[in-house]
Computed example of a mutant assay.
Amino acid sequence: MKNVVWVFFLVLGVFSCKEKQLTPEEIQPLVGKWRVTAIERADKKEWEYVTQSGQHQFEIRYDGVVLDSKGLSTCCGPLYLTINGKKFSIVPKETVPDNPMCALINCVYCETWNMDLQDNVLTISYCNGLARVRYVKI
């Protein structure tokens, strides 16, 4: 009897830990290009508005893959997105274009980007709150 109970909890644990995949409906509001408007550093806790933000853009593809402003893979990009409290694995559905600049970068890697989407304003918290960045859809 103890073995049956143990197996039941093992199976329950395996299925409850399974990552959800982004569905087209859930990713759709994020799909497109985003431009930075403000940055909040952890040590200041106040928003600094960015006026020259043409270089600070990224794109979220239909499958959740994050690309840079030129459509190449994002250096140090995430494996997971947490969107309004729901965590999802990024699973590319097609080839992600290589970015030759990534070979020159030493990443401080944050595997999860925590996103809060309100209308067309996206706030991303990186590396457990070391910085937050606010973007608008372009």
Rank of each mutant, 00 (worst) to 15 (best):
F58K: 10
Q21F: 13
L12F: 14
L22E: 00
D43Q: 11
V50A: 07
R35Q: 15
V5E: 04
K44R: 12
F88E: 06
A38I: 03
Y126D: 08
M1C: 04
T23V: 05
T95G: 09
Y109K: 15
S89A: 12
G85M: 01
E94Y: 09
P24E: 04
V66T: 11
C102A: 01
T37Y: 00
V96S: 08
M101E: 13
H56V: 10
K86V: 14
E26W: 06
L122K: 06
L67R: 11
E19D: 14
N106C: 03
R35T: 12
P92C: 12
V36R: 09
G85H: 02
A103V: 09
E26S: 07
T95I: 01
V136G: 10
R61Y: 12
G54K: 09
E25F: 04
C76W: 12
I90V: 06
P97V: 05
M115T: 02
Y135F: 14
L10D: 02
I124W: 06
T23F: 03
L67F: 09
L104H: 06
D116V: 15
Y135N: 09
V5I: 15
T112M: 08
P100H: 03
E26I: 01
I90W: 07
L104Y: 01
T82S: 14
K20H: 02
D116A: 12
I60S: 06
S16T: 05
P24A: 05
C102L: 03
C102T: 00
N128E: 14
T74C: 04
Y109E: 08
W34C: 00
Q52V: 02
W34N: 01
F9W: 13
K44D: 12
L67Y: 10
K45V: 04
L117C: 05
Y126T: 10
D68M: 11
C107H: 13
T95P: 00
D119S: 05
V4N: 02
K137M: 08
N106H: 09
E46Y: 07
E19A: 10
Q57D: 08
C75P: 08
D63T: 10
F15T: 14
N120T: 09
F8D: 02
F58D: 02
T123V: 13
A42D: 13
N114V: 15
L12R: 01
I27N: 11
E111I: 06
K2G: 12
L10I: 11
W113A: 14
E25G: 04
V50Y: 11
D98F: 00
P78D: 05
L79P: 00
K45Y: 05
Q21S: 13
G77N: 10
E111H: 13
Q55G: 15
A38T: 01
L72D: 15
A103D: 11
Y109T: 08
M101N: 11
Y49H: 14
C102S: 03
V7W: 02
R35G: 03
K70H: 08
K93A: 03
P100C: 01
C102F: 03
C75Q: 07
K93S: 03
N3A: 07
C75R: 03
N99Y: 10
L30F: 02
S53D: 15
I124S: 09
I105M: 06
V36E: 08
Q55L: 15
A42Y: 10
I27T: 08
P78G: 04
S69C: 14
P24R: 05
E46L: 11
F15H: 07
T95V: 04
C110D: 14
C17T: 02
P29K: 04
